[in-house]
Structure formats: C-alpha cells, structure tokens
Write a protein that binds this DNA or RNA. Structure first.
Lengths: 339, 339
DNA sequence: TTTAAACACACAAACGTTTGCGCAATTTTA
DNA sequence: TAAAATTGCGCAAACGTTTGTGTGTTTAAA
C-alpha cells in the first residue's frame, strides 16, 4: 500500500547500474548505450517513476513555477486573466502557484512571502486597490526575481507591466456619448490609488478637449467600489446642478449598483440616464438594466501577454543580469456597444 | 544587484558558527544559547533570509502544497469554491497549485502528472464532465497521496469526497413547483457521466412519489451543457405532447440558454413557463429573465470542507497508513426563491 | 575537590537530482 | 601492431535543509 514513490536511485539499484547512468538514460543522453537506455526507460515506466521536482529545483536553482497574485477570482475579469496566464505558463512548462489577496494588503504581503519561500521563478501580480507602499516589491527586486505587474499596476518606475489602454478606451466611451448629443456626462471613478483611475479621468479630459468642450471636474466622483460608496457617488451626481444625462462608471459592477440606485430614485435608466462602463462582463446581454456600452479589456489576452512577458524575462535573465530594461505592454481596448 | 538569496550556510559563515546551529537558532531550539540565537535571527532578518522551501520539502518529503484541479474558473461556482479551498489551505500552512482542465480529459491527466512531479501532498479535484476512465486516479492511490473529489465526483467506490445534496435539493425544487400547481414539469438534465445528473433525476422521481404522482420519464432530457444541446432539449420539451408549465434545468447557465430559446419561440418566460435551476448565481437578481428559484450549493463552504478534509487526511496519514476509511461529506442545499 | 549533569555547539548523513570529470574497454586510424 | 579516438559508464560534489549523535565547557551536586 504505502509504496514510496520510486527514485532513480531505486531504479539504479534494481538494474545494478549507477544513478548517473539512470539519470542520463532518462534524459536520452548520447553517452549512454541504447541497451541500458531502453532498459532504464522501461523500468521507469513500469514503476510509474516521476522525477521529483523538488530535488530538481534544488539542484537547478529553478522551480519552473510562477506565482500569481490577484485580488479575487470572483470577478470574471480576473478569472479570465488567470486562464490566459495559465495557458501560456503551462505551454512553456511552468506551473502556477496561485493566491488571492482579496484586496487586503496584509494578505498580499503574506502571499508574497509564501511565493518567496517557494522560490517561484517569477511573479505576476495585480495589486490590491489599497496598496500604497511598495517595499514588499523591493524584496523581489533585490532577490532578483522578475515581477510583472498586471492590470492594476502601482505608481512606480522601473517595472514591467501589461495593462490596458484605459485612456483611449475612455476617450472612445466619452466620444460615443458626445456623438449621442450628451453634453453633461458624469463619472463615477475608482480609488485614487489606482493608475487606472487617473487614466479614466485623463481620458475624459482629453476627449473633451478634442471636441473643444469644457471639462467640468465637479462631475467626477471617486468611490472605493463598495456598494455604499457607489450609491453615494450616484446620489451626488443625481443632485448635481447640471444634471447628467449619462454616466461613465469605473466598471460594470459599479454601473449595476449605480443603476440600481437610480432606479430606486425613480429614474428611468437607459432612457433618461445612460450608463457606459468598463470590463464588458459576459453576463451583460442578459441583464435587466445594463450599460449601453462597455469597454472591453480582453483579460484573457492580457493574461497571456503577462505570462509571455514573464517567461521572456526568465530566459533573458540568464544572459544579462545587469539589464535595466523593462517591458511595458499596453493593449488596446474597445468600446462594445450593447444598444 | 544579482545578489543570491541568502542561505543558512551564508549566515553560518558570516557568524563563524555551524550550519546546524543556525538552523536550530531559527527554529528556537532550546539547545541554542540566547546570545547566538538573537545574533542569528538578527542577521537573518537583515539579509531578508527566507528558507528555501525546495530544500525543506526534499528533506521532509513533504511540500506543504496541495493541488487543485477544476474544470474552469469562469464559472462562479468554481471560483467561489477555490476561494474556500485557498482560505483553509493557507490557514493550515498549505499553498495551492492550481490547474484548469477546461473539461478536457487529456489536460486533466497532464495536470495530474504535473501535480505528481511537484509532489503535492494532496489533491482536490472536480472532474471533467467527460471523464469516464479512472486509471489516472489510481496512480495517485498507489503513490499513496490522498485525493478529495469535489462536487463533480466519479462513480467509484473507496474515495473521499465532498458534494452537495442534489437529491434533496431537487426534491425541494420539484415540491415547490408542485405546490404552485404545476403538474407537468420538464427537466433539462446534464451529462450522464456525472453522478449529479443521476441525483437530479432521482430527486425528481422521489419528489413525485412522495406526492403520489406519476413520474413521466419522457419529460427529462439530457444535454452536454453546450448552448446547442440546451436549445435542442428545450425545443423537445416545448413540442412535447404534454406541454410543461415549468422546467427544472441543470444549472443557471442552462436555464439562461433555455429561457433565451423559449423567448425566441414567443413563449412568455416566467408567465407561461417557469424555470427552476441550480447554482444560484450571484448575478441572478440582476438578470432580465431569471429562474424563479435556484438551488444554492454553497460552493465556498464546499471548498472549505474539501480542504479541511484533505488536511485531515494529510495528518492522519502519519499514523495509520493502512486505513481504508474514507471521508464523505454531503452538505445540504437550499432552494432560494427569487420570486 | 571530584563527579555528574547540563549546556552550547559542531559533525555528518540524508533527501533526489544533475553534471563535470575520470577511466576502462572497445573501436578506429596510422 | 601500436597509438589514438571513441564509447559507455561510474564517482563524487553540489543544491539548502533538518536532525541524530558526538564533544568540549561550564555548572551543580556529592
């Protein structure tokens, strides 16, 4: 019953040959005779031999494991993203060690410790919406293990990241509304800690400038993505002296909450008040009240890109240890109209 | 720049003491003097020393890692589940190695190989909807690494699993409809490979028996969960000689597809035709057409239970290697009425 | 003062691999 | 036929830990 997992030592003993020969035989090393080679391979097969990755990792100082830290898989954005990551990671021979921060900084730090203990070769991380201090990232830098930031990127220089072009996405969203003759457009933006929040704002501003319209900063409110803060922001917009006919929200969840609140206030959503948001949830077409358009950010593709980037960093690392080069990928977003 | 990660050997050298002393000092071993102990710990702190889990795992023949294989994180059921798993796993000091099978058997097998290579201490798996052969699970059994099946469990004896009481959930669902005077109830069931499919059927039968009503097998159709097959099943039900006034579907996604199809056929969903389903997606209240009730399966809780079970197995393993005991947990489901 | 504990530490083996080097036996070349 | 090259394999070190056993001091008991 309690058979131990077979080792190459075991195989060596049974075949009366040395461990090194077994090792080489299993790797098809040219200096091993065909006869012993097949002998070894057959026995290995028979015993269900599977190399011990721990031993290999120790010896090679490489674990073929990448860490992935995301805020939470419950958001479809992130679950798609991790699928993209996993796909290319596995293709390249890496396994993913996963962790969810649940937007808790302490948890984020703790996860990073675990990842370090487990000697992940690299890390992909989408930071907490509250992360303001970045020392825990410095640790990784010092330890010389590459980090790719993903979607939610910190306000640091000298980092690798892949993100979505929120600015242009926002411009598309605003322009779409402007074409629809909307002149008073509210915005429920995200937490100020996120660069994506700033980008939304900038996009709004630039879109207005491009159309030679004046940007009214009193029309944009920040929220922390909680239902309550969304309600509050919505309320403020609804009672604004310039009553908006359309609102751009940080993402679809925010939009849903805002629409809920507006409906309660007897506002006829999608008639008197339009919403445009981000993420473009797959569920959108099935919703009762839905944003009229949503900025698609291609999370799966972003995940793939991030993983590709990391793998590349992992390979370049061997040659140039002193490189100060940093990869930055910004993928395009598109406005998807749901009519 | 390219500083190597510090090791206890490094610490030992700098302090001119032996490796073993450093190791024990870091573990607060009583046989180390207070002076050296603090000396070591301070230096370790200063160097950002983090023990190399690979070396530890090799030495202890234990990785403190558990594998989790799920069909796909895009379904909120599974993303909740993995959150539950991760929560207790982390609490107990384990890290999770994650993989998605995407309902592909080959991928499932491949993932299990990877997990074996990485010497996970245990495995939690929710099998593919197509998995019919079970040899790859035998490997794990032989290797003596515990497996906990989760939600989608194979039709095997001598396994550990946690699942949801689908039978009673179904009975609740059917009873609810019967109370609403529905007498012709259709069922769009899942793939026959899943036990959960059989349980739904049995639940239907038993609920009818309990109410002294005749069960009509011609009212239940199987589908493979794809949109097309759902449409087909719906079509068959709609053209059934006994036209159903309510349909129980395998899960909310199936319900959504079925409702979509029915709507296209000019059926007034939720008036002429009611739906009841399973999973109880968080999005449900926001949908345009939604099942009138859905069986909540508490995926997060199930995940927690599964992880707890695995951890327990991991601990018992030390003492009784020959135990043939198997844990089975069946958690209750509830019918949530959405009115 | 002698003897026995108690203390604080060092040595070395082991976990399962990979890999540079060495060495004998065989084959090829001169 | 002798020298050189090739073939096929073994030895041993190394990766970073943990831990059983040994050993030299100091302290306490007799």
């Amino acid at each position: 019953m309690t058979e131990k997992q077979p080792t190459i030592k075991e195989i060596a003993k049974r075949l009366n040959i040395s461990i090194s020969t077994v090792s080489r035989a299993l790797h098809n090393h040219p200096s091993i005779g065909l006869k012993t080679k097949t002998l070894v391979q057959q026995l290995a097969q028979k015993l269900d031999y599977e190399p011990n990755q721990m031993a290999i990792s120790l010896q090679q100082r490489k674990t073929f494991t990448i860490g992935v830290i995301l805020p939470g898989l419950s958001e479809s954005f992130f679950s798609s993203a991790i699928s993209g990551i996993e796909e290319v990671a596995n293709m390249k021979g890496y396994t993913v060690l996963m962790g969810q921060s649940h937007d808790d900084i302490e948890r984020e730090k703790q996860l990073m410790e675990t990842m370090k203990k487990h000697r992940v070769d690299g890390l992909i991380i989408s930071i907490t919406k509250n992360t303001k201090t970045y020392e825990h990232f410095e640790f990784f830098k010092k330890a010389n293990i590459p980090v790719v930031f993903f979607d939610r990127i910190p306000d640091m220089t000298d980092i690798n990241y892949v993100a979505c072009n929120i600015l242009s996405g926002t411009m598309k969203a605003i322009s779409y509304l402007l074409k629809g003759r909307h002149r008073v457009i509210g915005m429920i933006n995200g937490p100020k800690t996120l660069v994506a929040t700033a980008e939304r704002r900038d996009g709004y501003i630039q879109a207005m400038q491009k159309n030679r319209l004046k940007f009214d900063p009193s029309l944009v409110f920040n929220c922390d993505l909680s239902k309550e803060s969304v309600y509050e922001a919505t309320q403020k917009l609804l009672s604004h002296k310039r009553k908006p006919t359309a609102i751009v929200t940080f993402n679809d969840y925010v939009a849903m909450d805002a629409m809920h609140y507006a409906t309660q206030q007897k506002i006829c959503v999608n008639k008197d008040l339009l919403f445009v948001s981000y993420v473009n949830l797959p569920m959108l077409p099935h919703l009762k009240f839905r944003p009229i358009a949503s900025v698609e950010q291609y999370p799966f593709k972003q995940g793939q890109k991030a993983a590709q980037m990391l793998v590349e960093l992992l390979q370049n690392k061997i040659e140039n240890t002193e490189d100060q080069m940093h990869y930055k990928i910004i993928i395009d977003s598109d406005l998807v109209i749901h009519g």
